[in-house]
Simulated assay, not measured.
Amino acid sequence: MSPESQHRLRVLLVDDEHKLTDLLRLELDVEGYDVDVASDGASGLIRSRAEPTPDLIILDWNLPDFSGIDICQRIRAGGITIPILMLTGHDEITDRVKALDAGVDDYLIKPFSIDELMARLRAMHRRAETFSGPVSGSEVNEILKVADLSMNTRTRDVTRGDRALRLSVKEYDLLNFLMRGAGRVLERQEIMHGVWGENFYGDDNLLDVYIRYLRQKVELDDAPTLIHTVRGVGFILREQSN
């Protein structure tokens, strides 16, 4: 199945396993992608910033010079929002959290099937197109508030009372989703789809991990609890006295 586009999408493949890159280059070409291969992190970083800009990046975790985590963080630090799929042999939930916090959009555990790889690339591209439209003036300066918790969606600043909260990318995305649905019970699957996308294949336990991280940063001993668990259903963000 070819990419859903009028032109051949450009994929930057950053991996030093030559047999794998040869196979992926062939399969991606058949699927209608143009492929550029970088065999180390430094080269991948340079090519991610070069013209023509890649539409998608496939990035291996283990590279000869830098880790894929390091490269992803550097790509994101430069303001580049190209969707990134990470290939990894790391299957622990802490590793998945590390990858997502670094800015990857999805990850695929080795060994994997070509069909699954293609499905994830298509899903990432669709999500990128969905969120690449123009932003209205009201959205640019939107301030979300629940009790004394405040989020500026333009600057991505988050505060609880007079305390600034430092959130990772996914922690921010999750809190943003909870605040937009404040006062309503949000089901687990609804949250996973809203924060990670409908085609995300990750572990459902990731949600519990990020909820725990958020609570550590948002909740205060001397302030009302905001993030509540609805057992067997999901979560709700609302003010409630301790």
Rank of each mutant, 00 (worst) to 15 (best):
P134G: 10
A128K: 12
W61Y: 13
R127L: 11
I57Y: 06
L63T: 01
H90C: 12
E129G: 13
I93D: 09
L117N: 06
G89W: 03
R76A: 04
S43H: 11
I80F: 01
I69C: 03
R127Y: 08
D105L: 00
L56C: 09
G79A: 06
I93G: 05
I93S: 05
P64K: 10
I75V: 15
R47E: 11
P54F: 07
R96D: 04
L117W: 03
P52Q: 14
M118C: 14
R127Q: 14
S67D: 13
L45W: 12
H90K: 15
D106S: 07
I84D: 00
S132G: 04
L117S: 03
A102W: 01
S48H: 01
I114S: 05
H125K: 12
A102Y: 01
N62L: 14
R122I: 04
D115L: 13
E51P: 05
Q73D: 04
K98R: 15
R96S: 12
Q73P: 02
A123K: 01
V97I: 15
D65R: 13
T81M: 09
V97S: 09
W61M: 10
W61N: 06
L45E: 04
S48K: 03
G44P: 07
A119M: 13
R120C: 06
R49H: 12
E116C: 10
Q73A: 13
A102H: 04
I58A: 02
I109R: 04
L108A: 05
I69N: 03
A77H: 12
D105W: 02
V135C: 11
P54I: 04
E51L: 14
L45G: 03
L56Y: 04
L108V: 04
G68D: 03
V97P: 04
P52D: 12
R76W: 05
L63W: 02
N62S: 11
K110R: 15
Q73Y: 03
G133N: 10
L117A: 04
D91V: 10
I80M: 03
S67Y: 08
I46E: 15
V104R: 00
K98F: 02
T88H: 01
M118E: 02
E92Y: 11
L100P: 00
L45V: 09
L85W: 05
P134M: 11
N62F: 11
Q73I: 01
D101I: 08
S113E: 15
A42C: 08
I109K: 08
Y107N: 01
T94M: 13
D60R: 00
P54W: 07
G79M: 06
H90P: 00
G89F: 05
F112E: 05
V97N: 08
A77T: 11
G89D: 10
D95S: 14
P134Q: 11
